[in-house]
Design a protein around this nucleic acid. Structure first.
Lengths: 236, 236
DNA sequence: GAGTGGTCTAGACCACAGA
DNA sequence: CTGTGGTCTAGACCACTCT
């Protein structure tokens, strides 16, 4: 068994994973201890330990000092939410990306915006409103405020060629972020820009990103429900 | 420096993390090699290696054999999407959970449903439609099909006391799942059950779960946009 | 060839849980 | 007290990159 070319700790992990995902070992059942794995696979304790430790950080098993290792309750889906350049995303689907510029401006932050960006009220902020197109069809209405301290050259970008995400990834590397996903009806000007009817629902991602010491950006991205959804998957 | 009580590899990780999230080391910059870290922290190579390896699996740095370790392009948000019992979720917000049963039935699967559940067309499936309430306010319309092979006792559940999620976590431990998040308008009977107007948008989660050898369940969970959203965060 | 990371071992000491 | 996991060391061999 397992005469693959994989490293030993991977073979041990695979063996355990199989027993779990086949349903043979059920949540709460004990997993063989490090000592047992050392015997069975003829590996050192560090190697057996590494296999179990990595399975634990993956959430497949839980370990308790003094007690042992058990199959975890698998009610977790760990999924990745990736901040990607929407132009790249579109290109990968084999379509042609495009952008319409609605607004590019410097403004003074109102109280609420200043609070989310951790700036003083009235501080100068960059503001862009863009419509991203997939092969000519509007797919995202992006309303974004950027902290000049985090990306001073933001407004110099040619947004028909470079997306805000691309610029910010370059100039304000991400250290922290939070987001919410909501549904809503578009405001009249948003519906018009997206070329949809006023009653068509939209999927919204609101995201706040932090880069080093600064709150870098707050963005609200509106997608017509009929043209966009999020999806993901999880495998044990 | 760093006379904390933490394990050595954690101290090394923290030190590197600080330099990255402060912006001092930017994406693409080299990270001190294992040999350098051994000197600086007076640890063995295994310990320095573990620190770097874990930072790599967290996505903070990239490592290339023969070349070295570099600060990663941080365009990743890894977030966790957790399958939770909605009753628990409501209780944690300090509200009172409740459930109205709309449908409990055994049905024969149509072609499409049979395909998603990996069953033959016409096979027997369990079907429940429930409305979950938060302190009396409808918050989720849940339309779910369950594979009898994965959870034979599903229909015996008292759904006013135990949620489908709770039953399935118990009896059909999760090994695989996929989901999509969408926005839509409710069908008339859905709007009525949720006590919202027909034009109010909804946030939808469609989820398919696999347990061992069986596709366990397909669920469509509809939430009034005004009462529900998903959120998450990421920290380097 | 020098420097890097990838893996592995055989020991060690410690903290903790459960009988 | 025994068995468990948590950490750590001082070596080792290998594969790779870059100059």
């Amino acid at each position: 068994m397992a005469r693959e070319d994989k490293p030993a700790y991977e073979q041990v992990k695979d063996w355990i994973r199989q027993h779990i995902s086949s349903g043979e070992w059920r949540p709460g059942d004990p997993v063989p201890s490090e000592a047992v794995l050392m015997d069975r696979f003829a590996v050192s304790r560090m190697t057996a330990h590494r296999a179990l430790r990595e399975l634990a950080t993956e959430g497949l098993v839980t370990r308790t000092q003094g007690s042992g290792t058990k199959v975890a309750q698998l009610h977790r889906i760990s999924s990745q939410l990736v901040i990607r350049d929407i132009h790249v995303e579109i290109a990968e689907r084999g379509h042609v990306p495009g952008t319409r510029v609605v607004t590019i401006a410097q403004e003074k932050a109102g109280a609420e915006l200043a609070a989310t960006l951790a700036l003083r009220k009235g501080a100068r902020v960059f503001h862009t409103v863009l419509v991203h197109l997939e092969s000519g069809v509007p797919i995202q209405y992006e309303d974004r405020y950027v902290n000049p301290a985090a990306a001073p050259a933001y407004l110099d970008t040619d947004f028909t060629k470079t997306s805000p995400t691309a610029h910010l990834i370059q100039h304000a590397p991400l250290t922290e972020a939070s987001y919410t996903i909501e549904a809503c009806l578009p405001a009249p000007h948003e519906a018009q820009a997206l070329e949809i009817k006023a009653g068509e629902p939209c999927l919204v991602m609101v995201r706040r990103t932090v880069s080093g010491a600064h709150v870098a950006s707050v963005a609200r991205q509106l997608h017509p429900a009929s043209r966009y959804s999020f999806s993901g998957q999880f495998q044990a």
